[in-house]
Design a protein around this nucleic acid. Structure first.
Lengths: 250, 250
DNA sequence: GCGTCTTTATTGTATAGACAATTAGCCGCT
DNA sequence: AGCGGCTAATTGTCTATACAATAAAGACGC
């Protein structure tokens, strides 16, 4: 990789601290500075941009508050591991959430195939009807009870490797978490009565209430992946807590 | 009211900017500085605390980012109107959400009574079994279709006025938004099959999947109110979008 | 090699001062 | 009374500097 100094420039639009923030954000978003990458020190950045340290500090602090960067005294500043989505609406990555509660996690892949997007999926993923997507269906279990039926569509235009990926051992959630740089996400929650097929997969009675969480994950304007996660309503709840953000020491 | 200088002091714990932030936060939380109140200017605060302006600025900026304070050049800094909870998980205050979509909003109060908390409610509200709470049940409609059945419990120890409040015209959501100072909130979402009674109230078939949102609203450690909001699953969804917070100009 | 001390790079916080941008409120004019 | 322009209060940003806290890396002794 060429020296970062050659790539990172300001756009002269808005406050300088925000220009710097966005410049660094871009490096992270493109994956150029991957998770774990050590950022230049404040001093180096000041030097490069020709600003005071407080200005660079403010940019880095904003990125830290957004969870994109982790900072440690003496060691430096690093691109954070992209686990942020899980933090907002809990019970997102089953593979990590279930062991945390002391239950035995199980995973089974039902199918993974490259297909043209049907109308509904194309609309939700902002793709043209018929665009190629990877369609994965799998089950997550806790102590042998099914807690989530996952249906997943991956945009092959953005992530062509997904067509070759092996989802037999690892769920698409974890795979994507490793592969894709930071993004935005959007959740939609609804409740449905289980169809016969779904009831069978989940191990519940037909007609039982199920909680459906659909998550679209973005890279800028593009949808990387669409996940439809269906849970038996009585066996699972989701929760989140918010308020004035936590400040200072954790 | 006595001069603010008599009330607001630092606790000497942690960074100064955070002490200042918390000191101001306390004024807001207690309702001492109510929504719309004009805060002292940065210069006054510097003077009072004996710090540099940047330090006070950082405290106020943090409060602004948390949505607790609104700042305007030349005019000053003001305590924000407490509309923040609605922003996080949308479809929260039906009375404002429904007209926003061009539908006709309707509200009907079914009952409002002062009762001792049963075991389940007491546990969720962190109260002693039998503590007095105001229990309100009501319906929200959009173009005459029921979109939400609201069951609400209000902690009378914290809000004794709730026993006398008239919930026939205004829903408890709006009333509380006006009455109670800023807090944290916690959501729990699940899906249930409608019981006969609930199905009747919502105007759906018995057994239909319903989305249940339970929200606990806190004042520090105390639960102010518990809301159980039940929606017909097929008629309603909730969504939220998140990612790197918006920065800079709106 | 293995512990212990020292050095030092890096971030975290705070200060004092400067200028820019915004705009509420006042003053004067008609 | 209404309008227009000026003034000044207030926030927004930036600089340059200083010292504190942390912990990695190196130096030293054994």
């Amino acid at each position: 990789m060429t020296d970062w100094r050659d790539q990172i420039t300001l756009d002269d639009d808005g406050p300088v601290y925000d220009q710097i923030r966005r410049a660094i954000l871009d490096q992270i978003r493109t994956g150029d500075w991957a998770p774990g990458y050590r950022l230049p020190s404040e001093a180096d950045l000041c030097d490069h941009f020709g600003t005071a340290r407080m200005t660079v500090n403010r940019a880095l602090r904003a990125l830290t508050e957004d969870g994109l960067v982790v900072r440690k005294r003496r060691a430096g500043s690093f691109v954070a591991q992209p686990d942020a989505p899980a933090a907002m609406l809990e019970i997102v990555d089953m593979a990590s959430a279930i062991p945390a509660r002391g239950q035995r996690y199980g995973y089974r892949c039902l199918a993974s195939e490259t297909v043209p997007a049907d109308e509904d999926v194309a609309r939700q993923m902002r793709l043209l009807h018929g665009a190629r997507v990877q369609h994965v269906r799998c089950l997550h279990t806790a102590d042998d009870a099914v807690v989530e039926y996952e249906e997943r569509w991956i945009n092959l235009a953005l992530l062509p490797e997904a067509a070759q990926a092996d989802f037999d051992k690892e769920g698409p959630g974890g795979w994507l978490l490793r592969k894709t740089p930071w993004t935005e996400a959007e959740h939609t929650i609804s409740a449905i009565n289980a169809s016969d097929g779904l009831a069978n997969a989940l191990g519940v009675a037909p007609g039982a209430a199920c909680l459906v969480l659909e998550r679209r994950t973005f890279q800028g304007e593009d949808v990387v992946t669409l996940a439809r996660l269906t849970h038996p309503g009585d066996r699972h709840v989701m929760s989140e807590r918010f308020g004035p953000r936590r400040h200072g020491r954790e």
